[in-house]
Design a protein around this nucleic acid. Sequence first.
DNA 1: AAATCGGATGACAACGTTGTCAATTATCAA
DNA 2: TTGATAATTGACAACGTTGTCATCCGATTT
Lengths: 342, 342
Amino acid sequence: MKVTIKDVAELAGVSFKTVSRVVNGEVGVKSEMREKVQTAIEKLNYHPNLSARRLRGKSATIGFIYNNPNSNYVITMLHGILAAARKNSYELVVHPCENVSDPSLVFDEILSLTRRSMVAGLVLTPPISENPEIIKKLDDAGITFSRIVSGSVAPDDVQRTIFIDDRKAAYQITEHLIKRNHKRICFLNGDPEHLSSGERLEGYKAALRDYDIAVADELILDGHYTFESGVERAKQIMDIDEAPTAVFACNDEIAAGALFAARMNDVQVPEQLSIVGFEDSPFSRQTWPSLTTAKQPNDKIASHATELLIGMLEGDDDSDSYDDHSYLPEMIVRESSADMTS
Amino acid sequence: MKVTIKDVAELAGVSFKTVSRVVNGEVGVKSEMREKVQTAIEKLNYHPNLSARRLRGKSATIGFIYNNPNSNYVITMLHGILAAARKNSYELVVHPCENVSDPSLVFDEILSLTRRSMVAGLVLTPPISENPEIIKKLDDAGITFSRIVSGSVAPDDVQRTIFIDDRKAAYQITEHLIKRNHKRICFLNGDPEHLSSGERLEGYKAALRDYDIAVADELILDGHYTFESGVERAKQIMDIDEAPTAVFACNDEIAAGALFAARMNDVQVPEQLSIVGFEDSPFSRQTWPSLTTAKQPNDKIASHATELLIGMLEGDDDSDSYDDHSYLPEMIVRESSADMTS
DNA sequence: AAATCGGATGACAACGTTGTCAATTATCAA
DNA sequence: TTGATAATTGACAACGTTGTCATCCGATTT
């Protein structure tokens, strides 16, 4: 019942070593043989046994470590990583990390995982990927990984990093608001341990400066990437004397919270207040009104990060050096942002 | 750098087979030997190579197969399964299934996964877990699995099944509406290939009957477990002559869609229309108004299903036979449902 | 036509583990 | 003490794959 390389060999009438060659795309197999083997593989629906490969030292397992309460984000990343892993016949071990507050505990968790599951390399996402202490410990321990981070300039370890230009995307969103005649734009920040929050804030500030609008400290509020944070902070800004006409929420959850607060205060969106988010979460098109936001192709990003990792693991030095590792989230204009006429 | 069983054997001065015995806790090893081996293991920090074990057929890997677009559902399940798997030192292979429309393709996918990754058993969730064709094929192929299904009576394969009493929960929710004086209650159904939709519909009907309210066919609408379905169907019902005063949406997504449609039509919720959902998705408390719904402890359910599977794999016949495999979703009353005074 | 070469193919070992069975040692009864 | 039996230990094969090297065959060179 279990199809092995030898079954394929028998059906194709060749030695199992030849099948191995075909499967691994090695050179020096006559096309006639190759074809025979291919059809036998398809006929039997043969898939190489990963354990045997691993044992032989060829293939391996990738670990996906994450600590992110946003399930949509995690699932999208997961699927991107899985796609790349499967394509390259890697297995995936998934590991949600609990103690994100203490970097050294996170590191211990990772270490124990790599030991236990024989993980060859890791794919890291924010906020773990952006924690310098964890990164240093991983490097010291000689653990191979690729990572996804938020950043506007190429990091010094480009070859293992995908960076997302949140700053530029935030600039564009802010510009979008400015061009719609908004002058008092409030910024609701996300978690401080995520670089994305700082980057998005910088993009916001840069846009204001370029359009000669003063950056007002009272319009920039700390917070977290949660709905609750959005509600709370949005309530606060509505009490400000000269109320803002637009809100730049650091992600869609915050934006949804702000929308909620606006409704509670009988503030019309977008007529009296424009609200924009960031992330293009599925629910961003289901809010009322639907959210203007910025879309990150997270599955592609995750696949790319995984390919990067696999390249490192297999020692293809050249495989990727000319690739662009930067992604720019794309602005999506929906109904929550409008012209400010008054 | 890699420590194998033979290194341990050499240091302890025994054959590597004896080390294997100690590692696996087999009987028939003198305590003196056992101790020598133990200290050698600790000294070298030896960990068995999982690939070799799996290759030899001693797999400690379980597979989580799913096909469900609801990322929150999947993540919660995943975490529940992971917790139980880790507790019993099993590895987990995650496999999102693409071709759900064709059961035999799904089966092929599963089969190839179990082969390739030497998966010892599976945890299945709806809708795959509820597809008789897939279940039969798995049984025929001798694949071990546990599953989570929707059902009001104990299925005939209880020992490997967790069932969720959607019917009773739906009854309670409907009763909740009836007691608030609603007589014309609309039912927006979910995907037909999920048993949960049928079960919830039955619960709804049973409650109506028990309270002597006629079941009106024009108030029961087919659909899917999506926001869009909710919007569309809710629009339809608002055109009905004698408009319903309440909507029972088969899940929170549909309910959110209905909420959306109500708002588009300037229908006040809950003053003019009560809307209830099902699932207690995170966003159900973030809608406006927040949704009355029913909460399933999905992480616990998933853990339980995993424990069940592991019990089967390890042949602990008695481990679980007195457990209750049934879960009743708990009604959570929020703001989207209210008395009908008119 | 014989010798040589190179490309294609196959035989076999190895990876680290567990299962099977044989060999050895300890234990017990007669 | 001796033989029989039980307990312990070890030798070796096997799992499915890849790497190494030998073999084969056809083509090219002399």
